[in-house]
C-alpha cells in the first residue's frame, strides 16, 4: 500500500498504535514495561495531581485545581445518583475510577507523539468486560433469579414476549462489544485521521497549509470526542448498573 516507492504519500496512520517495550528488547512479556505502561502511569500521575495534590489544602474557598477536582467529583456523583438512583450511589468510586481513567487516557493520548491507551481494544474490551461482568454478577446477587425478568418484557403481548426476550438477550450480550468498540473505534479513528492529514501535509509542499489547518480543526473535534466518549462510557456504565441494582425502572 503505502510502502511502494512510486507513491509520494508516506502515510502510516496505524504506526502510532504499536506497543513498544520502553527499554529496548524485542519480546513483550506480560510484565514488560511498554509505552502502555508509560502513558497509563502518566494518567495515574495526572489523576493524583488533580484529585490528591490539588485538594491537599482542603480549603473552603477552593483553588483552581481544587475546583476542577470538585467539579469532576460533583459531575460523576450527580450522574450516578440521577441515573442509577439512590441505591447506586455506593458504586460511585467504581464509576469514578472508570471515568478518570478513560477521560485522562483519551486526553493524554491527544498530546502529539503520545500513545493513546484507549485506542486499543485490549484495553477498552477489558474495561467493558469489567462493567459487563460486574453488572451481571451484581444483578444476580441483588435480585437473584429475578434479574432474568429484565429480558421478559411483561408489558408486551404474550406472543411477542419470547421474540423480545431473544432480542433483549442478544442486545445484552452485545453491550460489552459496543461499549468497547465505541470508545476504541472513536479514539483510533480520530488519531488515524489526524495522521492521514499529517501525511498529506508532508507531500503537498506549500499547499500543506490546508491540511495543517484541517488538523487543527480535527484536533479540536477530537478533544470534544475524547471528553464526550469518556462521558458516554461512564453514563452507559451507570445505565447498566441501574439494571443491576433494579432501581428506577421506566
Amino acid at each position: 500500500m503505502a510502502g511502494e516507492e512510486t507513491s509520494k504519500l508516506n502515510i502510516h496512520p496505524m504506526e502510532q498504535f504499536i506497543v513498544k517495550p520502553l527499554f529496548g528488547g524485542d519480546t513483550i512479556h506480560w510484565y514488560t514495561p511498554t509505552n502502555v505502561t508509560l502513558w497509563m502511569g502518566i494518567a495515574v500521575l495526572v489523576m493524583i495531581a488533580l484529585l490528591v495534590l490539588g485538594t491537599s489544602r482542603r480549603s473552603i474557598i477552593p483553588s483552581r485545581l481544587q475546583s476542577v477536582g470538585e467539579m469532576l467529583y460533583g459531575f460523576i456523583h450527580n450522574m450516578v445518583e440521577e441515573v442509577t438512583g439512590h441505591d447506586g450511589i455506593k458504586y460511585f468510586p467504581y464509576v469514578m475510577t472508570l471515568f478518570m481513567f478513560v477521560v485522562l487516557a483519551n486526553l493524554l493520548g491527544l498530546i502529539p507523539m503520545a500513545f493513546a491507551t484507549t485506542s486499543h481494544f485490549a484495553v477498552t474490551a477489558t474495561l467493558a468486560m469489567l462493567v459487563f461482568l460486574s453488572v451481571t454478577i451484581l444483578g444476580f446477587a441483588k435480585q437473584g433469579i429475578g434479574f432474568l425478568g429484565m429480558f421478559w418484557v411483561s408489558s408486551a403481548p404474550l406472543v411477542l414476549r419470547p421474540v423480545l426476550a431473544l432480542i433483549e438477550i442478544i442486545s445484552y450480550f452485545v453491550r460489552p462489544l459496543s461499549h468497547s468498540i465505541r470508545l476504541g473505534g472513536n479514539v483510533m479513528a480520530g488519531h488515524a485521521v489526524i495522521k492521514v492529514f499529517a501525511g498529506f501535509a508532508g507531500a503537498l509542499g506549500v499547499a500543506s497549509v490546508v491540511p495543517i489547518l484541517s488538523i487543527a480543526a480535527i484536533y479540536g473535534l477530537e478533544l470534544l470526542v475524547a471528553v464526550v466518549q469518556a462521558y458516554v462510557f461512564t453514563i452507559l456504565t451507570c445505565v447498566y448498573l441501574r439494571d443491576a441494582v433494579g432501581g428506577a425502572h421506566h
Binding site: I28, H29, T34, I48, F101
Partner: peptide, 18 residues
C-alpha cells in the same frame, strides 16, 4: 496480556487512591 496487566495495575492504583 501486557496491556491487560498494566490496565489492571492502573485501575487498581486509581481505585485505591480514589
Amino acid at each position: 496480556p501486557n496491556q491487560i496487566f498494566w490496565l489492571a495495575v492502573t485501575l487498581v492504583i486509581i481505585y485505591l487512591v480514589l
